[in-house]
Nucleic acid binder design. Structure first.
Lengths: 348, 348
DNA sequence: GTTGAATTTGGCAGCGCTGTCAATTCTGTT
DNA sequence: AACAGAATTGACAGCGCTGCCAAATTCAAC
């Protein structure tokens, strides 16, 4: 019943060429006559031939694999699952279309010795490339371990593209400026900002974008309208209380991430401040919670899938001998307007 | 700098044995003298030898890979990310500890022809085994495609274990009965149930568990206390309204999933019915939202990670020639008591 | 036509390991 | 001590493919 899979030899003899020529066709190598290519392809189709990955890897000394390294969500209370799924989605899309496979590699950077372990495992797998997702992409221990394996890698959202290697990031700063302008266009002049964890680079960039945005609209920057959160819902709630108790309170609050924005929504509900009638709220990240709460959050969608796709594609191209130019590839984010923002209230 | 990786030959000559003996030690095959094993192991350590996976796969005609097939979350509005991450976590744990790799394989069962495509891709990969997660594990198109590849596979939560093959599931029915009993022990006698999508088998089992639980406590089953949802938050909200408008309304509502339970919480808030003072609410699944909403949901945690682990382990064992007994392996769920349940109100 | 270069094809040696089977060494028994 | 049988080890042929290099063919220009 289950007949033996066709091998390269079967194809070669059916097409009347040598196995080497079949190999050339399969690998799209140059210098094969078009007619030859055609007959080989016909034989491949006829026999339903699929190259054996192990044999290719063994002979070519590298596996057609991309490894995606990311912060292990199970080590903390995984609301980041959506983040990871999106990264996986993008990486998988790139891999599948190029005949590569994706190996996922969560790793908990809290453990000591993750670096060594990661290095060891990558050594064993020998992938064609490694995608390192934020926030791991900013941790020296992880990055050094990856570097030590001597495998091509691409870091995502390092926030510090030095231009010496290919990197992928989003335009956090620009798009945050864009969100600020959007709020200003709605008539808001007192736009508050809730900063996040300072060690998180991407989150830091958003603050600069906020300042840029104010400046672009000719709005003054006011120290009093900036408060410091820690990325959590709870901190968003606290920050919001502080801001909303001011006598001349802001009419819009822009939070450096969605969790904190959700906290703002909660605080406003408790204080009976209507959203968006009396207060506009914007977040960043477009986590799934953003559209589940009421009112649904206006936010910035990070192009995670597209970023992971770009990074994986670059690695695959590089494995094929067509490395991408060093430098920062910027994948733009997108402002998602939902229910939590609206025109400035009349009385303000 | 980067010296050639040690091969089995290097180990063999250092240990003074044949490569076959090294192979035996590495693969833990029987009939090797303890002293030989020891010296080979020493050589392996000394040389930091790692078997080349491609070479092993090529020679042994199968890859040390497990494929995890699940419903593609990107096709719908992915709140299921947490579900998938947990499955991945368990499968990964099993694979890593056994020297296998995990390949993830989301597939959108809505597309026509997924079956053929899946089959094709598995054929190419030639994994040692396939774990098929719910709800895909109940779709004939997917299951048939997997079966056609002639690769060992394990289905998760089919709800229909026929005992003819090894399967993994949780004790949905029992644990739902347990939740019902827990509510009864809190003094509730009017416990309502919100059913979910009827085509979802696991969700269906929970209704039977609810009935079992009532019976075990000597509580009557009342048709009027059972309403029909569709697994969504919105439907939970509607069902709750219906239940809470009854003259002799229930004091506890048990929903077949957390989304619907979250809907109940929302409806209760709107109707100014205090939770858990006036109403207890329980859900199923322990989605991340469950602990983010207020009050945090009492729910049933599905042992997703443990189930995926068990399934993967079974496949790995089977690849090693130690197949598990056919039959249903039940991994028990866990009742997580949070804030949304409490004693029956006095006046009720 | 002829020549030299460019293009296209083929031959074949591995890649590092496992499966098969045969050879060797070790048991316990008579 | 001799012998069957079990336990242990080794030899060697691939697994299916790619890399390297040589051979064959085609092409371009004279």
């Amino acid at each position: 019943m289950r007949k033996r899979r066709a091998t390269i030899e079967d194809v070669a003899s059916l097409a009347g060429v040598s196995i080497k020529t079949v190999s050339r066709v399969v690998n799209r190598e140059p210098n094969v006559r078009a007619s030859t290519t055609a007959s080989v392809k016909k034989a491949i189709t006829k026999l339903d031939y699929r190259p054996n990955p192990s044999a290719r890897n063994l002979a070519s000394h590298r596996a057609r694999l991309i490894v995606l390294v990311y912060d292990d969500p199970s080590t903390y209370d995984a609301p980041s699952a959506g983040y990871i799924i999106k990264l996986q989605e993008g990486a998988l899309r790139a891999c599948r279309s190029e005949g590569f496979e994706l190996l996922i590699h969560p790793c908990s950077h809290r453990d000591s010795g993750v670096g060594a372990e990661l290095q060891e495992q990558i050594r064993q797998i020998r992938p064609s490339g490694i995608v390192v997702a934020a926030p791991l992409s900013n941790l020296p221990e992880i990055v050094d371990a990856v570097k030590a394996t001597n495998t091509p890698y691409v870091r995502l959202s390092t926030g510090t593209g030095n231009g010496k290697q290919y990197e992928v990031a989003t335009n956090d700063r620009d798009i945050s400026a864009g969100m600020t302008r959007y709020l200003a266009e709605l008539g808001h002049t007192r736009i508050a900002f809730i900063r996040g964890d300072r060690t998180h680079l991407a989150v830091g960039n958003r603050f600069w974008g906020y300042r840029d945005g104010l400046e672009q609209c000719g709005l003054p920057f006011a120290e009093e309208l900036v408060v410091e959160g820690d990325n959590s819902i709870g901190s968003g709630e606290k920050c919001a209380e502080q801001l909303l108790q001011m006598e001349n309170r802001p009419t819009a609050i822009f939070a450096a991430n969605d969790d904190m924005a959700a906290g703002v929504v909660r605080a406003a509900a408790r204080m009976r401040i209507g959203i968006p009638d009396q207060l506009s709220v914007a977040g960043c990240d477009d986590i799934s919670l953003a559209q589940m709460i009421f009112p649904a959050l206006t936010t910035i969608r990070q192009p995670l899938s597209a970023m992971a796709h770009a990074a994986s594609k670059a690695l695959i191209d590089s494995a094929r001998g067509r490395p991408h130019e060093p430098g920062l590839e910027v994948v733009p984010g997108e402002i998602i307007i939902r229910e939590s923002t609206g025109p400035v209230p009349r009385n303000a």
